[in-house]
């Protein structure tokens, strides 16, 4: 159907131009990000409702979160967004090595985020600040303190799962880069991974003030 020349290997048979394929991927990815926003949207909605119901509880309970660690994680993720963007830029310029090192840095920062999150979580587990019926901590004033921690663990937990998914995808991109799958002409998958990673970052930028900085 398609002429043999002018149909590069990265172009799927049902597209006629690279442009068309790239635009389709972009539409698909943005729609997917939209579904992610809505997935979190349900939890943001639950957060808003319970914070409106129990404003004092949220205020008291949030002081048990470690703002220093939260802020560190925010910086870590924002930096990782930068290295991700640099990885894409490097491939646009055909600089494979720079792409590899920036992807490695992104992975490292994502890993750092998870390690810090692990420290925070284990501290809370230790104190009995667990979701729902497993909640045993007694130091928070106000009724139903487990609600705050239920929502905290659900939202940061779901975010953490997204960080892990992002790391897997970035690792896959790293592998494909080393295998010379990409070039200055074709780097759509890295670009799409970047979009996803920025969203993961963005969600954290909302989570951080909503949980750690309740004024």
């Amino acid at each position: 159907m398609s002429n043999a020349e002018g149909h590069p290997t990265h172009l799927a048979h049902h597209f006629s131009t690279t442009e068309q394929q790239k635009d389709s991927a972009k539409i698909g990815m943005w729609l997917f990000l939209l579904t992610e926003v809505l997935l979190f949207g349900g939890l943001f909605c639950a957060y808003a409702i319970f914070r409106a119901w129990y404003p004092d509880l949220f205020h008291n309970a949030h002081s048990f979160l470690d703002t220093g660690l939260g802020a560190t994680n925010t910086v870590v993720l924002i930096t990782s967004s930068l290295t991700m963007a640099l990885a894409i830029r490097a491939m646009q310029l055909g600089n494979k090595n720079a792409t590899i090192w920036n992807l490695v840095a992104t992975l490292g920062l994502a890993g750092t985020f998870l390690v810090i999150k692990y420290i925070e979580y284990s501290h809370k587990f230790h104190l009995g600040q667990l979701p729902g019926k497993y909640y045993t901590f007694t130091g928070v004033e106000g009724g139903n303190p487990h609600i705050f921690f239920s929502i905290y663990f659900m939202m940061t937990g779901l975010h953490g799962i997204h960080v892990i998914a992002g790391m897997i995808t970035i690792g896959w991109m790293l592998y494909r880069t080393t295998k010379n799958h990409f070039s200055a002409e074709y780097y759509t998958p890295i670009e799409m991974t970047g979009l996803y990673w920025h969203l993961v970052d963005l969600i954290w930028i909302f989570l951080f003030p909503l949980f750690y900085l309740i004024g």
Binding site: Y54, K133, N144, I147, S150
Partner: peptide, 10 residues
């Protein structure tokens, strides 16, 4: 039993 749909748990 996270409690957000359970009236007994707020």
């Amino acid at each position: 039993h996270i409690g957000i749909f359970d009236p007994a748990m707020g």
